[in-house]
């Protein structure tokens, strides 16, 4: 049963990722991204990270992809891109080498160390649920990082509002006031 879930979710992840790379229309690429994000959420559930699975669906598939789609519609770039143009002659072979090299190197490292990596106790052995463990860690050990996150979000929101604001034409006779 676990095997079936793993195979199906992995197929979703890989198919969605390939879709993001090969679809010519950005809207289709965004939908491929949704498929990948849902596949990763299924993997999180299979690894009993229930809270992260819920957040993954809400934040990534819900908010981030919708933001992508909004920007695609806003800019009107939802036309197909011509993928046959290759601006730098050997860019694609080199990119394939980089991608495949990353996979092979990381894969070799993972397979070679599969028995030497320390194996810890079961996460929920203490009887606490996943979300309780996560909350205890987040609000005790990582509480400073959690507080700094609020600063990050405020800065990001304020910066984006500033960046995307349409610049008003300054009146000719504005006096000296700023």
């Amino acid at each position: 049963m676990d095997l079936v879930v793993f195979v199906l979710a992995s197929a979703m992840v890989i198919a969605g990722a390939l879709g993001v790379v090969v679809f010519r229309n950005p809207v289709h690429a965004a939908l491929g991204l949704v498929l990948t994000l849902f596949g990763v959420a299924v993997h999180f559930v299979a690894m009993e990270a229930h809270f992260l699975a819920a957040v993954q669906v809400i934040v990534y598939a819900g908010a981030i992809v919708v933001l992508f789609l909004f920007v695609i519609m806003l800019l009107g770039v939802d036309r197909a891109e011509d993928l046959s143009i290759e601006p730098i002659p050997i860019q694609r072979p080199l990119a394939a080498v980089v991608g495949a090299g990353t996979v092979v190197l990381v894969g070799t490292a993972v397979v070679r160390t599969r028995d030497t990596i320390a194996r810890g106790p079961e996460l929920e052995a203490s009887g606490d649920s996943n979300i309780r463990l996560l909350a205890r860690n987040l609000f005790s050990d990582q509480v400073l990082a959690f507080e700094l996150t609020s600063v990050l979000l405020i800065v990001a929101v304020a910066g984006t509002v500033l960046l995307t604001r349409k610049q008003k034409r300054r009146p000719e006779h504005d006096g000296g006031g700023s």
Partner: peptide, 22 residues
Amino acid sequence: LLAAVLFGIGAFGLLVRRNPLV
């Protein structure tokens, strides 16, 4: 291993695609 494959696909796409959104 799945994460490695996903990372490789993402890196390949980042190097190949020219649309900033993609």
